[in-house]
Amino acid sequence: MVDIKIKITDREGVAHTVLAPTDMAMNLMEVVKSYELAPEGTIGICGGMVMCASCQCYVTSNTELPEMSDDEEAMLSEAFDVKDNSRLGCQIPMTPDMEGLEVELAPES
C-alpha cells in the first residue's frame, strides 16, 4: 500500500495535510469526504459522475494532473467561482504522481 501526502485547504481556510491511499482507486473528492473536510451533503453530491460542481477545487501546487475531459470542462463552464486553476475533485485520481498535491476547496455554491 502506498499512501501519498496531499494538502487540502477547507472552505474555512484551514489547511489539512492528509494521507491518501493510492491503491483504492479513490479520487480527491472521496478523500475530502473520508476525512470529513466539508460538511456532509455539500461535496460530491452527484457521486463523482461529473454532473455537479460541488467538488470544485483550486489546484495551488504545480502537480501535473490528468488532462481535463470534455465533461469536466463543460461542468466547470456552468459552475460558480471558477478560476483558471479550477478542477473537479472527482476527476483527480489518487496516484503516486499526485504526491505533494495542494488544493483549496471552492466555496459552496
Rank of each mutant, 00 (worst) to 15 (best):
S61Y: 00
T95G: 14
M98R: 00
A74C: 07
E72R: 10
E78N: 11
M75V: 12
S69P: 02
C57N: 09
N85V: 15
L37W: 13
F80M: 11
L101T: 13
S61V: 00
M68C: 14
I43A: 01
M51S: 15
E102L: 08
S54E: 00
E72G: 15
V82H: 05
G41Y: 07
E99S: 08
M98K: 03
C55G: 02
A53G: 07
L65P: 14
G41S: 13
N62H: 15
M51H: 08
K83M: 11
L101I: 03
L76E: 06
D70A: 12
M94F: 09
S86K: 14
C90P: 15
C90S: 15
L76G: 06
S61C: 05
M75I: 02
Y58N: 09
T63N: 08
P39Q: 01
M75T: 07
P96I: 00
G48N: 11
L65M: 11
C55F: 01
L37P: 08
E78K: 04
G41K: 10
I92Y: 06
E64Y: 03
Q91W: 02
C57Q: 04
E64G: 00
S61L: 01
C52W: 04
G41A: 10
E64P: 06
M49V: 12
P96H: 06
G44Y: 01
C46W: 05
L88M: 08
V103F: 02
E72T: 07
C55M: 04
D97W: 03
C52H: 12
C57M: 12
C52E: 07
V50Y: 04
D70P: 13
S77V: 13
G48D: 12
G48T: 04
M98T: 03
D97C: 09
P96F: 03
P93G: 11
P93V: 04
E102K: 10
A79I: 06
L88D: 03
F80C: 06
V59Q: 09
D97Q: 12
G48Y: 07
P93D: 08
L88N: 05
E67F: 07
F80Y: 06
C55T: 00
D70W: 04
S86D: 00
T95M: 13
S86P: 01
S69T: 10
T63S: 07
Q91P: 02
E78I: 10
S77R: 15
E72K: 14
S69W: 08
P66L: 03
K83D: 07
